[in-house]
Design a protein around this nucleic acid. Structure first.
Length: 553
RNA sequence: GAUUCUGUAGCUCAGCUGGUAGAGCAGUACACUUUUAAUGUACGGGUCCUGGGUUCGAAUCCCAGCGGGAUCACCA
């Protein structure tokens, strides 16, 4: 069966490379005056025409079945085994070294790279040497997708290579890729990279280019996905239900943050993009599920930094009949498992530090941690005393700050940045946690913990507040804050209160920042490095020619 | 939002006290049948982010704007 026709310059005996009737050459493409073309871009466009005039479709439709990937050949080829003697590979052409009638090239597929050996008389066994002399040497460019068939061997210098017997163009690249090259320094044995594609703006805007030329970027995103999969597997094994809740919400809730606002035309109403999942997931616990979780994009209309993107990913989990101590155990186990899944060990290099996620993690109450790092015992202090302590510790305050906020400032200034190894901080002031249950024995505190790692919070969890009367009071306190101008104060969600009134079992809840955890697990310095397409201002592109207005008459 | 650095060829970067731009890689052409940052020779390639200003003359100095990075503030 021939399912790969349309190639004029390929070998007829191959399934993939069979020759059928040529497609009629299209009219030569003229330079399209959409934007300024560089010399190299124009040359590549000209090559399209030349290819078509040779009967070669630069964008063939037929599938191209590969039977191996570059990496598995690199890993498993042994000359004495004489394996990989019929391989079909496809990928981008990343380098070419022409040496007369033979050439070396590098093919990159989704797994990695492998060298190709292309010999004129092997790919052109007959009189016609056009495929080699014209197509391969002149009309192919770095970045083009090609397919090859051949056998694997080792060159004299020991490089595992594919001896190409057949070669086809699968897709022409019109935009030159950055040419990044690597070499091993003979003196030091270190790998050196030349002309790396490093400009952050270009890398983030054109992530596709970043992914093509920077293999470590690809690794980072694969690890991010593995992280999510490891968590999902863990939670599924426990029998919890993955669910989906609304992103467009008439009321936003579950966190202290400013929302994005949008509008639904048919309903004629304002909607908000969710800032957290909490209130919907708890409704599902009310509804009778024992354990529910959601990986969710949340949206917060706030400042951006290397730790903040306007949309970010959280995993929230709620489990009935549990409390926050139980949830700490779960977090330890789950994150340890993530580290193992990604690195095969519990230690992870992050910047200058090696972070060890092995259980058990250290646990301090917030007051203990402050005492440990500052020597000040805040647990018995009133607002006046806290203010004095903050001043002594050089923590800047403003007069509007209450007791809880002052404690939070001291903690943020003197404790959090020093917690490098994963550490649980427990028992927060009630004013900062309007959705958490009051502590069973410590007045003024709630049953809440955060896990801090590398100086940053990676998760936040409580014994969930399920007393509807208390919850209403907390919401009303938030409304007061809102009236006083706190733009992040929570709004009162009457339906959520109604749900609690029906009764919610004691429940432990968790929110874990997937982007933050990904940064740590991949040793990334910026959230932009763990988001494929971080939010950026629009790029100034040259204007396309004005489109005629659609005729709606 | 504040401070600061930054924007030059497809990529990485030079470009001094102002005189209309250079290098390496990439590209084009030729040579070369096991190379590997292949090599050799030759040749092309620029809206110096944008707009003003100063000047005989601006990539360079000044002002404004746009984009980006870093740090800080708010936040996860």
């Amino acid at each position: 069966m021939c399912f790969y026709g349309g190639r004029g310059l390929t070998l007829p005996e191959s399934d993939y490379f069979c020759s059928l009737t040529f497609p009629a050459p299209r009219p030569l493409s003229k330079p399209i005056p959409m934007h300024h073309l560089s010399e190299q871009e124009q040359i590549r466009r000209n090559k399209l025409d030349e290819l078509r005039s040779l009967g070669i479709d630069p964008y063939p439709s037929e599938l191209f079945d590969v039977n191996f990937y570059a990496q598995e050949i690199q890993d498993n080829y042994h000359p004495e085994l004489n394996n990989f003697q019929e391989v079909t590979l496809a990928g981008r052409l990343m380098s070419v070294r022409v040496m007369g009638k033979a050439s070396f090239a590098e093919l990159m597929d989704s797994s990695g790279r492998i060298q190709l050996y292309v010999n004129r008389d092997e790919i052109c066994p007959g009189e016609d040497k056009t495929l080699y002399n014209a197509v391969f040497k002149k009309l192919l460019d770095l970045g083009d997708f090609i397919g090859v068939k051949g056998y694997v061997f080792k060159t004299q210098v020991g490089e595992t290579s594919v001896h190409v017997k057949e070669l086809v163009l699968l897709s022409k690249s019109l935009h030159p890729l950055p040419v990044v090259r690597e070499a091993v320094d003979e003196a030091t044995g270190e790998k050196k990279t030349y002309d790396a594609f490093t400009d952050p703006e270009a890398r983030y805007r054109q992530r596709y280019v970043d992914l093509v030329v920077n293999p470590q970027v690809r690794d980072t995103f694969v690890k991010r996905t593995q992280l999510v999969q490891a968590m999902r597997n863990y939670l599924n094994d426990k029998g919890y239900l993955e669910v989906e809740t609304p992103i467009l919400q008439p009321l936003y809730g579950g966190a202290a943050a400013r929302p994005f606002k949008t509008f639904h035309n048919t309903l004629d109403m304002t909607l908000y993009l969710r800032i957290a999942n909490e209130l919907y997931l708890k409704r599902l616990i009310v509804g009778g599920f024992d354990g529910v979780y959601e990986f969710s994009k949340d949206f917060r209309n706030e400042g951006m930094s290397r730790f903040h993107n306007p949309e970010f990913t959280q995993m929230e989990l709620y489990v009935a009949y549990k409390d926050y101590y139980w949830m700490m155990d779960l977090v330890e186990e789950m994150v340890e498992r993530v580290a193992m899944a990604l690195h095969g060990k519990t230690e992870v290099q992050v910047g200058q530090n090696v972070i060890n996620f092995q259980r058990p993690w250290k646990r301090f109450t917030m007051a203990e941690s402050i005492q440990h790092f500052t020597g000040v015992d805040i647990s018995e202090l009133d607002e006046e005393g806290l203010r004095a302590a903050a001043k002594q510790l050089h923590v800047p305050l403003d007069p509007s700050m209450g007791k809880a906020k002052i404690i939070d400032e001291i903690f943020g200034e003197h404790v959090e940045p020093k917690l490098i190894q994963p550490t649980f901080i427990t028992d927060y002031p009630v004013e900062m946690s309007p959705l958490a249950k009051k502590h069973r024995s410590k007045p003024g505190l709630v049953e809440r913990f955060e896990a801090i790692c590398n100086g940053k919070e990676i998760c936040n969890a409580f014994s969930e507040l399920n007393d509807p009367i208390d919850q209403r009071q907390r919401f009303e306190d938030q409304l007061e804050l809102g009236k006083r101008g706190d733009t992040e104060a929570m709004v009162l969600d009457e339906d959520f209160l109604r749900a609690l009134e029906y009764g919610m079992p004691p429940t432990a809840g968790l929110g874990i920042g997937i982007d933050r955890l990904s940064m740590i697990m991949t040793n990334s310095n910026s959230i932009q490095d763990v988001l494929f397409f971080p939010q950026m201002k629009p790029e100034k592109l040259e204007k396309a020619p004005a489109k005629p207005e659609a005729d709606n008459s």
